[in-house]
């Protein structure tokens, strides 16, 4: 045999068959695994069985309450509409929320963490009330020591123009709004009560509304009147709550609309947010 084939050839054959044995079996096993997976996927899609038993939902981490000075770290959750989202802040720093956290950490000399910014553009108070049933909202609120919130602007705006979002502008009727303000107020009450239920110890900061239409003659006094009434109502809710406060912002914008509002003429710009943030930090410490 050797004589006919030559030694090198014979060794080549030997190692080839050895390689083939390994390669053949390995790839065959791979193929079988793939076929199993493919079949399993079809079966699971078309004839699903009961799934895996899931672990119990663990209760959300709750805030401990107590004196802030004694704590090693503070947790902040923010929620509400586009003002909390930071819309209009072209620096991308995230509106007033990020600034508040940064300032608080600096002034209190301890880490202040943002649990979550749950703000959603265009959110109304009634929608927020529904959202407060979601786990994500519950968890984030339960964990917080401080809750920052803006809500209600969209409610008022939509009542005034019966539809449309607040950034769209358009015709609004202050008379209609003033008349229907009592419709919107209970929504804010629901929000306050629900948050308090989720977290008995957190300080709630409600950032008051301002009148972005102060420079329109027909809206100067009527618009500001509505805003004042709304803020007043919010203040009464905060008082009733006991651990909540309303941070006023209407005065920051009245005579300086151009300087502190962004180009959409509705949301504050970076400087506007910085001023709101200063107010909040002053109210907190």
């Amino acid at each position: 045999m050797l004589g006919v084939m030559g030694l090198g050839e014979w060794i080549g054959m030997k190692s080839s068959s050895w390689l083939w044995r390994i390669l053949g079996w390995t790839t065959l096993i791979c193929l079988l695994v793939m076929l199993t997976g493919f079949g399993w996927a079809l079966k699971d899609t078309w004839f699903p069985k009961d799934g895996l038993a899931l672990p119990e939902v663990s209760p959300p981490e709750a805030a401990t309450g107590g004196d802030w000075n004694a704590k090693e770290e503070l947790f902040v959750t923010s929620l509400g509409d586009s003002l909390t989202k930071g819309t209009g802040d072209s620096t991308g720093e995230g509106g007033y929320v990020a600034r508040v956290i940064e300032d608080l950490a600096k002034q209190m000399d301890k880490p202040v963490y943002m649990v979550n910014n749950l703000a959603i553009n265009g959110l109304r108070a009634d929608q927020l009330t529904n959202r407060l049933d979601e786990n994500g909202f519950k968890n984030a609120i339960a964990k917080a020591d401080i809750i920052l919130m803006t809500i209600g602007g969209n409610d008022l705006f939509q009542i005034a123009q019966s539809g449309g979002s607040m950034a769209e502008g358009g015709d609004i009727s202050p008379e209609l709004l003033l008349e229907r303000l009592p419709e919107a107020e209970p929504r804010l009450k629901d929000v306050f009560q629900k948050i308090r239920k989720l977290n008995p110890t957190a300080r709630i900061i409600y950032v008051g509304l301002f009148n972005p239409f102060y420079d329109l003659p027909e809206m100067t006094s009527s618009g500001s009147k509505i805003v004042a009434e709304w803020n007043d109502y919010a203040y009464s809710l905060a008082k009733a709550d006991g651990n909540a406060t309303v941070v006023p912002t209407y005065d920051l914008f009245e005579f300086n609309l151009k300087a502190y509002l962004s180009s959409d003429h509705f949301h504050p710009n970076a400087q506007g947010y910085a001023r709101i943030s200063d107010r909040i930090v002053q109210a907190l410490l």
Partner: peptide
Amino acid sequence: VGFQVQGADVDTTGVHAVTQGVYLLMQSGL
């Protein structure tokens, strides 16, 4: 697994859990 996407809505009635190991096997098969 088992989310049924219908337009913008997701039907969750058929949703069940599998382990990631099983999922990896099914995914590799596909």
